[in-house]
Amino acid sequence: MDGKVTLSHGAGGELTFEVVKRFFLEKFLHRSAMDGVGLDALDDGASIKTKNLEIVFSIDNYTVNPIFFPGGDIGRLAVSGTINDVSMLGAKPVAILDAVTVEEGFSFNDLELIVNSMKEAAEEVDVAIVSGDFKVMPKGKLDKIVIAACGVGVTEKGKIILDSGAKPGDKVLVTGTIGDHGVALISKREGIEFETEIMSDTAPIWCVVEAALKVGGVHAMKDPTRGGLAGALNEIAEKSKVTIYVNEEKIPFKEPVIAAAEMLGLSPYELLSEGKAVIVVDRELAEETLNEIKKTKYGKEAEIIGEVRREKPGYVLINTLAGGTRILEKPIGEPIPRIC
């Protein structure tokens, strides 16, 4: 792979997958440990097995820009995102390690605000922040602050939930409105900025996942962060080798998210959410799971949006508002506004 890294390689779409496959998957020899889930699964995290437990890990780098945005900041995002990645594997988050790197000259007041947000998000799910690192880079060598965070969770052995668990006949639900975080960020971007009440939905959603797990029918879960809903659904369809059908009328969006997507020529299915999950659940337990989720703090607007079939494995098909059908593709790079 010659040439240079572009922003699109970091957007969580096909280009990101190419980099991960070419530079990591193909290079590393040992890709799993202690009989656990490893790199090959390319899931939200990995695991190791002990006598009767499965310990789940996730790691992510948070480089959001701007670092303070309507509805949150990079601190809340780092802790919530880490808690959510661990939750997506069906594991109860118990600990977080974080590495904070700041640029020389970064204000301590801002650092305090960010760390307070980390504290609040962790305390919402009573997860311990057990270890970390703090580094400073010379002025101009880093854009303000970057936070890397590793999450640790536990589940009973064999109870881990992977993207490859969806079964034909299952129902597909989302735990709330899609694309809020994406629009909140874009509204601040120079050259395309606009006013809106849309706030980022950044939140630790273990309580939602826990409620769903209690019902007992969860087969697969994915948080629609980078790559949006289209990315998450395609990943589940590919890894489970199933077809996913969604009904566009059922997908919950806040109205300003659709307004912003249409004004800028963006697909609402590629916009980020940072406090939502796609959950694939056994058909018989779908309604019950939905009701339990709706009782939780972050699951009030959950909806069943479609179902799993087998005719075209690896495909996501959408029955559109106009009644037609089309393929919902995995995004290639980052969403870029267009006029045509």
Binding site: V183, I198, A259, E262, M263
Partner: peptide, 11 residues
């Protein structure tokens, strides 16, 4: 100029 509302998005 005018402030225009596209449905919760103003520009």
């Amino acid at each position: 100029r005018a402030v225009v509302d596209f449905g919760g998005v103003r520009r």
